[in-house]
């Protein structure tokens, strides 16, 4: 009986040790994967996400990697560029007018006012224009105010100022976008480029009062080449600035990633620089440079002399097809 148990026991021991040896043999050679394998840092740098108890925004990702040159791009390039687009362009234009003089109407005002813009056109212009001016000033404060303004005022005043700038910037965005959308869609048909626009560009619209450009009056339709350039720049960069602005203004709706938000910030600034520079030119042209130009966006009518001098093709056309309408 005892012997019998011994034999069974021995058999069992041999069996199990054989299985054990076989297992040991099979696991040798193939290297066991090590728990972390030195990869944690590279995984985190590559933006690995994980599990966390926190409900904070983006909290499941330890590190969000992006191109850090964005930071220098904003502070060293975009901020000075926007400042230059506003103040630099004003200085350049003032100097230009001092040297060159303005564009006078030949033979003075005729006193006869020609219908050019409807009341609706004038109102959508100002719907976009007034917010645009406020957006430029507050946007400049937000992008570059800390560099050129904050050092000269007190902490409390600066805090109030920059907060007001943000509020105005946020709320003026809506009427601006409305004005942009209406102007872009309703006015586009008069802004299509024509061959004579090239000639207009060659003589800079005839606004230069010296050298070979003096006294030139290039052809222009309802809009001249310069106005067309401004229109299309405004249409394109207005779209970019509106789209990027919406991302930043309604993070709750669009839920952009952090990197996308930074890209939106850069695109917003670049568009702002272009629109600002164009706006300054546009304002100077309308108010100072082109005598009689401002009247168009006040009453919607322009002087007959102004129409024939600056928009001869349009004036000829409306005379011909009978749509010429005088103010009574």
């Amino acid at each position: 009986m005892n012997n019998w148990f011994k034999q069974i026991g021995l058999t069992l021991v041999l069996m199990f040790s054989a299985i054990g040896l076989a297992q040991a043999g099979s696991s040798q050679g193939a290297e066991q994967p090590v728990a972390t394998d030195g990869q944690i840092w590279s995984q985190l740098k590559a933006g690995a996400t994980g599990v966390t108890t926190s409900h904070g925004e983006f909290h499941n990702q330890p590190i969000n990697t992006y191109d850090l040159r964005v930071l220098e791009l904003r502070s060293d390039l975009l901020a000075p560029a926007l400042t230059a687009a506003l103040f630099g362009m004003i200085i350049i234009f003032v100097l230009f007018i001092k040297v060159n003089g303005i564009s006078k109407l030949h033979g003075g005002f005729s006193g006869k006012l020609v219908y050019r813009w409807s009341k609706f056109d004038v109102s959508i212009h100002w719907l976009g224009a007034i917010p645009c001016l406020l957006l430029i000033l507050t946007g400049l404060t937000l992008l570059a105010g800390r560099f050129f303004f904050q050092p000269y005022i007190g902490e409390g005043l600066w805090a109030g100022f920059v907060y007001a700038a943000k509020q105005v910037h946020d709320f003026m965005a809506i009427p601006f976008m409305l004005g942009w959308a209406l102007m872009t869609t309703l006015w586009a048909k008069n802004q299509l480029p024509k061959m004579y626009d090239l000639k207009w560009m060659m003589v800079v619209g005839g606004y230069i009062n010296f050298g070979p450009f003096k006294g030139k009056h290039p052809d222009a339709g309802f809009a001249n080449a310069g106005e067309k350039l401004w229109f299309w720049a405004f249409a394109v960069f207005g779209l970019v600035i509106s789209a990027s602005g919406m991302l930043l203004l309604f993070p709750n709706l669009f839920e952009p990633s952090r990197t996308l938000s930074l890209i939106a910030l850069v695109l917003h600034s670049v568009s702002a620089i272009i629109i600002t520079a164009f706006s300054i030119v546009h304002i100077f042209m309308a108010t100072v440079m082109s005598e009689g130009g401002m009247e168009c966006m006040v009453s919607g009518y322009c002087d007959e002399t102004w129409a024939s001098q600056h928009h001869n093709l349009w004036f000829d056309e409306i005379k011909e097809n009978g749509t010429l309408k005088y103010k009574d």
Partner: peptide, 17 residues
């Protein structure tokens, strides 16, 4: 947006920033 570590947190996430 700029913080790589998601450290800054805000009490709200409303429209108009």
């Amino acid at each position: 947006y700029a913080c790589p570590f998601g450290a800054p947190q805000f009490p709200k996430k409303g429209a108009f920033g």
